[in-house]
């Protein structure tokens, strides 16, 4: 999900909002707009979902799940 050219690097690899690890393409994960402000995309990796780890919206501070 990331594209790199000679001069520009567009990083689109999603990063888990809870653990900050990159989520490889095709890996089990959920993405949704922050339930509260709707302005930030929240990503949650499979592990963080499994363990019910907290996530925090960097924009509005909403804490889930």
């Amino acid at each position: 999900m990331s594209t790199a050219t000679k001069n520009t690097t567009v990083i689109q690899t999603p990063i888990c909002t809870s653990c900050n690890r990159t989520i490889p393409p095709g890996a089990e994960a959920t993405r949704f707009d922050c339930p509260n402000c709707g302005e930030i995309i929240i990503w949650r990796c499979q592990k963080c979902r499994q363990f019910g780890r907290k996530y925090k919206c960097p924009k509005c501070g909403f804490m889930g799940p």
Binding site: T30, F32, P35, I42, R44, R49, Q50, F51, G52, G64, P65
Partner: peptide, 9 residues
């Protein structure tokens, strides 16, 4: 309840 697999409680 536990939060396994839950995104919003």
């Amino acid at each position: 309840n536990e939060f396994t697999g839950v995104d919003f409680v």
